[in-house]
Design a protein around this nucleic acid. Sequence first.
DNA 1: AGGTGCAGTGCAACTAGTTGCATAGGTAGG
DNA 2: CCTACCTATGCAACTAGTTGCACTGCACCT
Lengths: 181, 181
Amino acid sequence: MALEHAILVSLTERAGSGYELARRFDRSIGYFWPATHQQIYRVLRRMDEAGWVTHTEIAQEGRPDKKVYRVSAAGREELTRWLAEPVEPAVLRDGLSVKLRGASLGDTSAVLREVERHRAEHAGLLEVYRGIQRRDFPKPDRLNGRQLHQYLVLRGGVRAEESFVAWCDEVIQALRSERTP
Amino acid sequence: MALEHAILVSLTERAGSGYELARRFDRSIGYFWPATHQQIYRVLRRMDEAGWVTHTEIAQEGRPDKKVYRVSAAGREELTRWLAEPVEPAVLRDGLSVKLRGASLGDTSAVLREVERHRAEHAGLLEVYRGIQRRDFPKPDRLNGRQLHQYLVLRGGVRAEESFVAWCDEVIQALRSERTP
DNA sequence: AGGTGCAGTGCAACTAGTTGCATAGGTAGG
DNA sequence: CCTACCTATGCAACTAGTTGCACTGCACCT
């Protein structure tokens, strides 16, 4: 019961179709709450039946018709209710750490290459975040309300990726000097 | 297909029962690969059927009998196979960020209290990690093999929690000065 | 002419994970 | 004495999430 709320937040920011929501989950909100288009479509239907959202079918030329969803009064109520209740701590599932922990049972240099690969991916994501930060929040001192909150979430992403990259560097250095003592 | 591998890593470090594994997942490996006892029991059975592990029933006095699992040759083979293949990037699901992003749609001060609560929890976890670090790895310069890898995973935990706590502090400060401008 | 990719929704079948409960004896505390 | 917790395993029913596929029509590239 929480993809619902991520969708409510996103739809409150702007109404949209399932497809559009899936794009947003790919580019922004999905960085901290991932979801596939399938899951989104399914949950949207459930939310529609529960009355949290309404939809309008929009006929389009040259491309398929779409259903634009918007948050209803009941949805806004549910969202404020959820915002006031405690939320469980973040869940992390990191296969790389499992691998590292078992590295000595296999080919350590393959694990090292994996860490290097992940380092590159996370460094890329960090650049994406920093790009958004430069473009959308060039003067972060004067923000408030929704803009401030979006900025703060982005800051979390930047910090997390910086920390991940730094960890990768530490691991890479340690594994390299282990291989050539 | 990855809880299997986390279990293989843990059972290779030391054989144990489902219950013992569940304890370990609560205290160490579960910090980056969470699992409930139910899931562990189910997967253990599947791994047993697949021949990756074997079990011996141990009769005990005063407490229930237990099944001690150990990794078989096929299990070790599977583990080395998995260690050599690429692993998907870590998945994070952070409800607090969703909340923060939607904070202006509800009671912002309730969200602030939530951030403070999470800060305290993560600071506590950080202390746990640092305690393990002091106790188990007082001289990290001379480690290698399994010990080094375990230490590096722990370092990842320390870094992640430090970063999370620092982010919470940034958020708390920003939300406070937003409320009293 | 043929392939790829985007926009758009969705079904079917699957795997993974959660929650609640059951059982049972021992141990510790109020 | 009663409650609560620990050790130990597990069933049943549920919710969540993944993977693979289908269909339409346009645009773009080769």
